[in-house]
Nucleic acid binder design. Structure first.
Lengths: 119, 119
DNA sequence: ACAAGACATAGATATCTGTCAATATCGACG
DNA sequence: CGTCGATATTGACAGATATCTATGTCTTGT
């Protein structure tokens, strides 16, 4: 069973949609997908995503990420929050540290939308 | 022979780079790719792109595109300009009309970056 | 309990972005 | 040529966004 458009998360919408190049996106679909794209439309967030994705064990501690940038800790925290809210990063607190991990499905859905790869 | 990073267009940079998830993006690469992603990080531009891409003959006249939105003509023109400058849309003037056409390579490069599909 | 460290939140501010109305440009056609 | 219709450019403005400093919240040692 499939949920109505209004109940879906952005990731679900991307997953359901035909690739960009096959048929016109509806206004609703576009409004739903855009935030997901916006989430990676920033050089810092692109790097954060790739840092987490390519890190050993597929996860990275915020402490590691902070060091990779010339930005304040709250700024990195802010970007991580945006990526998390977009569904692209999962967040897990273990002791004092917080680990982020890429949600491969969300990222794959985005690529599928753009490239027409049917998962 | 491959050009230096600074000589490359955004599209070329995307094409050259390993997928996001394989190794960390350098700051330079991220700064280069982000504008390309920003170009599609808007619901109107997503719809424009998909409208053009899925249009008969792979091209669409601005006059057709204007009608699909509740936005002023200059606003649509502005979005088309951004997509064109990002290398995602080609522009051709024929008589009074202007036709836009998707640059499939640029779009494919983006998808490859996100999804790890090697072209 | 307290102090310290890791991360998040809040508030402030400068810059960027999306939109519109007005105007310019450019080609076709009488 | 002069007008009309299609598209682009300009200038203005409201709202979003990226960044910082200051502060709050937890968790772990001592």
């Amino acid at each position: 069973m499939s949920k109505s458009l209004l109940e879906q998360t952005p990731g679900e919408t991307v997953a359901c949609c035909s690739p960009l190049t096959r048929e016109p996106l509806s206004a609703d679909q576009a409004e739903r997908i855009a935030p997901l794209v916006k989430a990676i439309a920033d050089p810092v967030r692109l790097r954060l995503l790739s840092l987490v994705a390519s890190h050993a064990d597929g996860e990275a501690c915020v402490c590691d990420l902070n060091d990779a940038f010339d930005l304040s800790q709250p700024t990195i925290s802010h970007h991580l929050k945006l990526l998390h809210e977009a569904g692209l990063l999962d967040r897990e607190k273990r002791g004092v540290w917080v680990y982020y991990r890429v949600d491969a499905t969300a990222l794959g859905d985005l690529a599928a939308l753009l490239g027409g790869v049917t998962r």
